[in-house]
């Protein structure tokens, strides 16, 4: 977080006044969330203290899908319009989404242990679908990291993004039919079974995590953007260097 304040004054950094205060808000929110989550919200009758996991699990699951939706839209916009802005957004969202996705899977299985008496339940449609999505997005990132021509890499990654988006409903459907039942909690937000304080804490949790997501997205986007600018600057230099090679040309004059 100290980086944020330093960057706020440096023009070449990825921070700005907005991200600085956003970062401060995230820290404050995180402290509030810890207090609310551990002390204010009551333990659940059945799940007992494990219920507190939802303050991480639900927001990260929501943001995973927000992030990967951004990747899907960005992929489409790169292929359709060759929009660099969307290409970088897709990449940034995929990286951050994978982290949130890992967090979702981790908290989900830790929560599942005391509640369902198992770390992993194959019958849980959302968890299994999310795992497959996680694996596909790992593939997306490995394509991003594969090097070579930059635009070609963007195009390849974009096609992976579209393949993931298009196949996700059918993955979900197949897992659902497969077990034909699901252990997963109905949406915690809307089923009305949560205590008022728990619900309030969850809403705060979503807000705090969303703010963190936005903060991370802005920084990741700007890093990638600056890298591009550096390379474009590099290109002009590279062209000059390339042309200078001609001075050493000793081929016969015809």
């Amino acid at each position: 977080m100290t980086q944020t304040s330093e960057n706020a004054t440096a023009r070449t950094g990825t921070g700005s006044r907005f991200t600085f205060w956003l970062g401060v808000a995230v820290i404050a929110g995180a402290v509030a969330l810890v207090v609310l989550g551990f002390f204010a919200a009551p333990a659940d009758d059945e799940q007992r203290d494990a219920v507190r996991m939802i303050f991480v699990h639900v927001p990260s699951a929501l943001l995973t899908y927000v992030a990967f939706s951004m990747t899907a839209v960005g992929s489409l916009m790169w292929i359709w319009k060759r929009s660099l802005w969307w290409d970088i957004t897709a990449h940034a969202a995929a990286e951050i989404g994978v982290i949130f996705c890992a967090l979702t899977l981790f908290t989900g299985s830790v929560w599942g242990r005391p509640t369902w008496n198992t770390y992993w339940d194959w019958g849980d449609v959302r968890l299994v679908t999310t795992l497959i999505l996680f694996l596909i997005m790992i593939g997306y990132l490995s394509i991003r990291a594969s090097g070579g021509d930059e635009e070609a890499t963007s195009t390849r990654a974009a096609v992976v993004g579209l393949v993931a988006a298009v196949n996700l409903p059918i993955v979900n459907r197949s897992v659902e039919w497969w077990f034909d039942r699901t252990l997963h909690q109905k949406s915690s937000l809307t089923d009305g079974n949560l205590e008022d304080m728990t619900l309030f804490t969850l809403v705060v949790g979503i807000a705090v995590w969303a703010a963190f997501f936005l903060w991370a997205m802005i920084h990741r986007f700007r890093i990638a953007w600056l890298e591009r600018e550096l390379r474009v600057g590099d290109l002009d230099e590279a062209i000059i260097e390339r042309r200078a090679e001609a001075l050493h040309d000793e081929s016969p004059v015809l």
Partner: peptide, 13 residues
């Protein structure tokens, strides 16, 4: 890495 997760529904179905 790319192909096998995509084929998950086929494996299940």
């Amino acid at each position: 890495i790319l192909l096998l997760p995509i084929l998950a529904p086929v494996l299940i179905g």
